[in-house]
Every structure is written in C-alpha cells, then in structure tokens.
C-alpha cells in the first residue's frame, strides 16, 4: 500500500495545476490542449474510482442475456475479466451483425438494455455531463443506471 496522497488526491492536484497554472498562461492551440489534458486527469481519476464495479457489472449483465450467456468459467483477476468481457462483446457484435438481434422481443430488449448500461458506464467516466443533459441529474461514478 502506497503512502498518502492517494491516487485520487494526486490526480486532483494534477488537474488543478493544469487548470489554474497552465491554461491561464497559454493561448490558442496549447491552451486548448492544456484543457484537454486537465480533462484527461479527471477522466483517469473517475475510471480508477469506478473500474472494478463497472467491470463486474458488465460481466454480470453479459452472463444474464438469454441465448448469449458466455459459458466461460468465472474469470480470476481483473485482466482475465477484461478478456472475458472483450470476448463476449465480440460475440455479441457478431450476432447483431448476423441479424440475430433484429426481431423485437426479449433478446433485443435485453441486448439494448445491456448496451445502454454499458455505454452509460463509459460516459460516467469519460463525460458525465453528456448524461446529465438526458437524465436531469449529474451522474456520479458508481451511480445506479
């Protein structure tokens, strides 16, 4: 275990430095890129805070989709979990492409629900404001779908 500051405290400090020291001291393209960099620092902070629960949720949802349930053994460790999700997602993409999810019904509903929650989880990390415009409330990491 590392000493304080925590990774959250470090990234917060990095974002604040970019926003308060670099953005006002630059202009034009460099200023724009400094804003982008500050956003990246906040994005990484949100990802670290929510990654574990997001991966668990995504895997659980994929396993629950009727007819698509990946039969792999429960992945051990985060890398194995990522690989299992990637494999199941590639399978889902192929099935959609082949028309298996075209018809209205429980499968299409389940797939659309899964995709909406998965995309939502990505936006909670990358751009919570994008969700707020549709949901009326600011999205928080780990918040329920």
């Amino acid at each position: 275990m590392q000493d304080r500051p925590t990774v959250h405290e470090l990234l917060e400090s990095l974002g604040r430095f970019l926003d308060e020291e670099i953005v006002p001291a630059t202009e034009g393209r460099r200023q724009f890129l400094a804003r982008v960099a500050a956003n990246v620092a906040r994005l990484v902070d949100r990802e670290l805070a929510s990654e574990e629960s997001q991966l668990d949720d995504e895997w659980r949802r994929l396993r629950a989709i009727p007819a698509l349930a990946p039969d792999a053994a429960e992945p051990a460790g985060r890398e194995a979990l990522r690989a299992a999700i990637a494999g199941a997602t590639a399978d889902l993409a192929r099935r959609i492409r082949e028309g298996e999810v075209d018809a209205d019904g429980p499968l299409r509903s389940a797939v659309l629900d899964h995709l909406r929650r998965t995309v939502r989880a990505k936006l909670v990390v990358s751009n919570p404001a994008w969700l707020a415009a549709d949901e009326g409330t600011p999205a928080t990491p780990g918040g329920a779908a």
């Binding site: 990637a86 997602t89 889902l92 959609i96 492409r97 028309g99 075209d102 659309l112 995709l115």
Partner: peptide, 11 residues
Amino acid sequence: EPHPVFEITLR
C-alpha cells in the same frame, strides 16, 4: 475493438 452499438445501428 467491437462496437455492438454501431452494429445495431448499421442494422
């Protein structure tokens, strides 16, 4: 990477 939302949009 696979993008299932893009696949469903193409359909």
